[in-house]
Design a protein around this nucleic acid. Structure first.
Lengths: 139, 139
DNA sequence: CCGGAATATAAGCAGCAACTTATAAAAGGA
DNA sequence: TCCTTTTATAAGTTGCTGCTTATATTCCGG
């Protein structure tokens, strides 16, 4: 449980989660997905998967010599719940709206078959795309 | 880096956010809050605040010689939205029970730890339970 | 059984991120 | 003006984290 946000803090691990967003996949496929963006070794991805597993963010299922990984919604929900505390204290009632947003994202995901849009969307969030006004850049 | 999740990955920064959960507070008060749990220098907290600010998770307002920090809901919402893609669309409606349910399910899962696939995960849960702190318990 | 495929672990190394102390900057009060 | 308070920045050190290569483990087909 300790380690959920630590695990989410790594961009490669978030990418792995995105690769698993469409459903259960063997480690090899996850490896390929990550490699489609940057060169990385098989052990590196295996280690990332371990971190995610120990954080409760993914679950594994052995099938033959393959390891099928899938997102563990519980772990994600835990992180989400923690974040929920900081959302406007006046409005825990914004929840239904939140659910709608999620529903829309899900519909999009189901309707489509290409993983490209997915990554792009998440990447935007990753890079902190928000309404400007904060141009306080400092290296 | 300007990553939201990178910023959230540090336990001290999450603690700072918790200290700001009750509303705007001057940097000095944040410093005291963090110090109430572990010894840390003033510059260290100042640097953490900068990371949070650059990630869009907090905003600052100068008042005299004081700097008043507050949570920026937009940044948190971005993270929450990203996480939302992996969560059951109906889950947000169960929000109040979320944490408890997660806890229970996790305990169950750890108890029936299957050798090979789940051993490491169970160990991680054990380690996670040590904290006992209200806010950090989750993360 | 044996070779190969899929995955995990071991061991070691490099870079960075978070800490420290020292100092600067800015504002308010005597 | 000078001192104090409050916060930020500079500079340097170090432990941890994520990477690599090499090897072990497990399973399946021939």
């Amino acid at each position: 449980m300790d380690g959920v946000f630590e695990a989410l803090g790594d961009p490669v691990r978030r990418q792995i989660l995105e690769a698993l967003a469409d459903g259960e996949q063997p480690a090899g496929r996850v490896l390929d997905a990550v490699r489609s963006r940057a060169p990385i070794s098989q052990p590196a991805v295996s280690q990332h998967l371990r971190v995610l597993r120990e954080a409760g963010l993914v679950r594994v299922r052995a099938e033959g010599t393959r390891r099928l990984y899938a997102v563990d919604p519980e772990g994600l929900a835990a992180a989400r719940t923690w974040l929920g505390r900081f959302v406007d204290p006046l409005a825990p009632f914004a929840q239904p709206l939140d659910a709608l947003e999620t529903e829309l994202a899900r519909g999009r995901r189901a309707r489509r078959a290409e993983p490209g849009t997915n990554a792009a969307e998440a990447g935007a969030v990753d890079r902190g795309m928000r309404s400007g006004e904060r141009g306080d850049r400092l290296a």
